[in-house]
Write a protein that binds this DNA or RNA. Structure first.
Lengths: 154, 154
DNA sequence: TATTGTTATACTCTATAACTATA
DNA sequence: TATAGTTATAGAGTATAACAATA
């Protein structure tokens, strides 16, 4: 008998006493908490240029590409086409991107001059953010971070 | 001069050609993508017991604790009290937890017998999920995963 | 005065369905 | 027929403000 404590078996989670958050040993839970914390932080940083994380991602993605369609962007970023429409629409309204017809059906989403200027600010913000994020990870774990995460979705 | 390609400097991101997703080298971006993918998967698994991830987290958290209040749960899981009310309300309606007055102001959220039975199913689902998640991470990165993530929010 | 808990509300993200137009 | 794009809509998650009741 391994358990002589008299407490009920709660599935190998730490005992209630002395551990404020027994879920913190679960990989999926820690993944969710870390992502939520980091994206909230990035969202705050990006509010400086009045962009959401998804919008900034689009700007970063289409830079240097002049034939990328809305559906291609959606595929790359895992955003449904129905959700791409209002997303691109807002960027167009703000003058950051424009729709350029490729043929009668497809339209390339390209940066405007103003969009490129905003993207420059986005790069400044995200590069600082990404560096700070990595700095917070202890050195012995740092190089394992991106490879481990990429194994979960790529 | 490091760049003789004639392409514009796009902030050290990979060149457009040959890389379908140049954002995949960014720690924050990979963190978001991995978390979204894993939580979507967990959500699908938990639909078997008609629970959302946040609801399952509450059941896992309060097990073995009989004096945990709504605000304490919210603090532990980073859920605002205004959002705890409808969350707990749904669990009460479904008969999985009940509110037990601690004093005139505070109420403990405790599992009902039915809630414990459901929690047993939740444990089966989440343990399988967590194991599968870890299995997908290459062995050399696996032990670094939770420590790295916990450094970002704990 | 601070804390617990609630209601109302709104914004974002995400998802499906239905539709138009073009390849 | 399949693809590109749009609109409408709904379900979650999350945020603030305002409020009542109690410590």
């Amino acid at each position: 008998m391994a358990d002589t404590s008299g407490k009920p078996d709660n599935g190998s989670l730490p005992a209630p006493d002395g551990e404020p958050d027994p879920l913190a040993i679960l990989p999926g839970y820690t993944l969710r908490r870390a992502a939520n914390a980091m994206m909230a932080e990035l969202g705050t940083l990006l509010s400086e240029v009045d962009l959401r994380v998804s919008e900034a991602s689009i700007l970063l993605l289409i830079d240097g590409r002049d034939t990328m369609t809305s559906s291609q962007i959606g595929t790359a970023l895992d955003i449904r086409s129905a959700n791409m429409a209002p997303l691109i629409g807002r960027l167009v309204t703000r003058g950051l991107v424009e729709r350029v017809p490729l043929d009668g059906k497809s339209m390339a989403i390209i940066l405007t001059v103003e969009g490129e200027a905003t993207l420059h600010e986005v790069r400044r913000i995200t590069q600082t953010f990404e560096q700070d994020l990595l700095q917070r990870i202890p050195t012995e774990h740092r190089d394992h971070f991106v490879p481990a995460l990429n194994a979960l979705w790529r």
